Deep mutational scan, measured.
Amino acid sequence: VTLFVALYDYEARTEDDLSFHKGSKFQILNSSEGDWWEARSLTTGETGYIPSNYVAPV
């Protein structure tokens, strides 16, 4: 499992996005959609889309 960590805070703009804070960790579920990845937050357990340029591999 590849884990990613948030580099910045992000406020969701749609109900499909995940809001998160810098330092939040994610499991990436689908990275084939270009700049928006489907991810599960390891902090909240919620699933949604995150901007790929806001995260980096742990």
Rank of each mutant, 00 (worst) to 15 (best):
F4V: 11
K25F: 15
L7G: 01
Y10F: 09
E15W: 09
D17M: 14
G34M: 11
I28D: 00
P51W: 07
K22Y: 05
D9E: 06
F20E: 00
L7A: 02
D9M: 04
S32H: 10
T2K: 12
F4K: 01
D35L: 12
F4T: 03
P51H: 07
L18I: 11
L18A: 01
S52E: 03
H21N: 12
Q27E: 14
A12V: 02
D17E: 15
V55I: 10
S19W: 03
H21Q: 14
T14N: 14
F20D: 00
S24P: 00
S52A: 13
Y49A: 05
K22R: 11
L42W: 08
T44H: 04
R13M: 12
D16P: 04
P51G: 03
T2I: 13
S52R: 13
N53D: 10
A12R: 09
A6C: 03
F26E: 00
T47Q: 10
V5L: 07
Y8G: 05
Y54P: 00
N30Q: 08
T44D: 06
E46R: 11
S24T: 15
V5T: 05
N30S: 10
L18V: 05
Y8N: 06
D9T: 06
S31H: 10
Y10S: 02
H21S: 14
E15N: 12
L42E: 07
L42I: 12
S24E: 15
D35N: 09
N30G: 09
A39C: 04
P51V: 02
F26N: 00
T14I: 06
F20K: 00
W37E: 00
F4M: 08
P51Q: 05
E33K: 14
S31T: 13
E15F: 10
D16S: 14
S31M: 15
E11V: 14
T44Y: 03
E46P: 01
S41K: 12
T43N: 09
A12Q: 06
V1G: 13
F26Q: 00
W36Q: 06
V5W: 07
A39P: 01
A39F: 03
L7S: 02
E33P: 10
P51D: 04
D16Y: 15
D35E: 12
T44M: 02
K22W: 05
E46V: 08
W37G: 00
Q27A: 09
A6P: 00
L42Q: 06
Y54I: 06
A56Q: 10
E15L: 11
V5Q: 07
L42C: 14
N30R: 08
Y54D: 01
V1N: 13
Q27Y: 14
E38R: 12
E15T: 13
D17H: 15
V58T: 07
I50A: 00
F26I: 04
S31N: 12
G48V: 03
S41Y: 06
E11F: 10
A12Y: 02
S31C: 15
G48E: 01
L29P: 04
D35G: 12
Y49Q: 08
D17F: 15
G45Q: 06
A6S: 05
R13A: 11
L3T: 09
G45R: 04
T44R: 03
I28F: 03
T14L: 10
V55T: 03
V5M: 08
D16H: 15
S24H: 15
I50P: 01
K22E: 06
E11S: 10
Y10P: 00
D16V: 13
W36D: 03
P57W: 05
S32P: 10
R13N: 09
E33V: 11
D17R: 15
E33G: 14
V1Y: 14
L42T: 07
A6V: 01
D17S: 14
F4W: 15
K22I: 08
F4A: 07
A39N: 00
L42D: 04
V5S: 04
L3F: 12
A56T: 11
V58C: 13
Y49G: 03
A39Y: 02
F26G: 00
T43Y: 09
P57S: 07
L42K: 03
H21D: 09
D9A: 07
K25V: 15
G45C: 08
T14P: 02
G34I: 11
A12L: 02
S32G: 11
D9R: 04
D9P: 06
H21P: 09
S19H: 07
R13K: 13
T44G: 04
V55N: 00
G23Y: 06
K25N: 06
I28H: 00
L18K: 01
E15G: 13
V1I: 13
R13I: 11
L29K: 05
H21R: 14
F20W: 01
G34S: 13
K25I: 15
F20P: 00
V55K: 01
T44C: 05
T44E: 03
A12H: 05
P57H: 06
Y10I: 01
S52T: 06
A39H: 00
N30L: 06
K25A: 08
V5F: 09
T44F: 03
L42R: 03
E46N: 08
W36N: 05
S41D: 14
I50E: 01
